[in-house]
Simulated scan of single mutants.
Amino acid sequence: MTLPTNPRPQIGDRIIDNSAPPDDSAVREWIGPQAFGHWAELRNWIDEFYPAVFEPDWLYGGKNRGWSLRYKKTKAFTTLVPEYRRFSAVVVMGGAEREKFEERRYVWRPQLVKLYDEAKTYIDGKWLTLGIASTDDLHDVTALLTMKRPPPSRG
Results as ranks from 00 to 15, higher is better:
Pro21Met: 09
Glu48Val: 03
Asp136Thr: 11
Leu3Val: 04
Tyr84Asn: 09
Thr78Gly: 03
Gly62Asp: 05
Thr146Ala: 14
Ile11Ala: 11
Ile132Tyr: 04
Asp23Lys: 14
Val90Gln: 09
Tyr71Leu: 12
Arg8Phe: 15
Pro51Gly: 10
Ala40Ser: 13
Gly61Trp: 09
Val90Tyr: 11
Ile11Gln: 11
Gly62Gln: 10
Lys120Cys: 01
Phe101Gly: 07
Leu138Glu: 09
Lys72Arg: 15
Ile132Thr: 06
Arg149Asp: 02
Arg154Lys: 15
Arg105Cys: 02
Tyr60Thr: 02
His139Arg: 15
Arg28Phe: 00
Gly131Cys: 02
Ile16His: 04
Gly131Leu: 08
Phe54His: 09
Arg70Met: 10
Ala40Leu: 11
Leu80Val: 01
Ala76Cys: 00
Gly61Leu: 10
Phe101Arg: 05
Pro22Lys: 11
Asp136Ile: 08
Glu103Cys: 07
Ala35Lys: 07
Gln34Gly: 01
Arg14Cys: 09
His38Asp: 03
Asp137Ser: 13
Pro51Glu: 03
Arg65Gly: 15
Pro151Phe: 07
Tyr116Thr: 01
Phe101Ala: 05
Trp58Tyr: 09
Gly66Thr: 04
Gln10Tyr: 01
Met147Trp: 04
Trp58Asp: 03
Thr146Gln: 12
Glu83Tyr: 00
Leu144Thr: 05
Leu115Met: 12
Pro82Cys: 07
Tyr106Arg: 10
Asp57Lys: 14
Arg8Ala: 10
Pro9Tyr: 04
Arg8Leu: 11
Leu144Arg: 09
Ser153Ala: 13
Gly32Lys: 12
Pro150Val: 07
Thr5Cys: 01
Tyr60Gln: 03
Thr129Arg: 15
Thr146Met: 08
Gly12Asn: 04
Leu138Phe: 10
Gly125Asn: 08
Asp24Asn: 15
Leu144Val: 03
Ala133Tyr: 07
Gly37Pro: 00
Thr129Glu: 10
Tyr60Ser: 01
Asn6Cys: 04
Gly66Pro: 05
Asp13Ala: 12
Ala35Met: 04
Gly94Asp: 15
Asp23Tyr: 08
Lys126Cys: 05
Tyr116Gln: 02
Trp108Arg: 05
Ala35Asn: 04
Leu42Cys: 06
Ala52Thr: 09
Glu97Pro: 00
Phe36Val: 02
Pro7Leu: 12
Arg70Gly: 02
Gly32Trp: 13
Pro51Met: 07
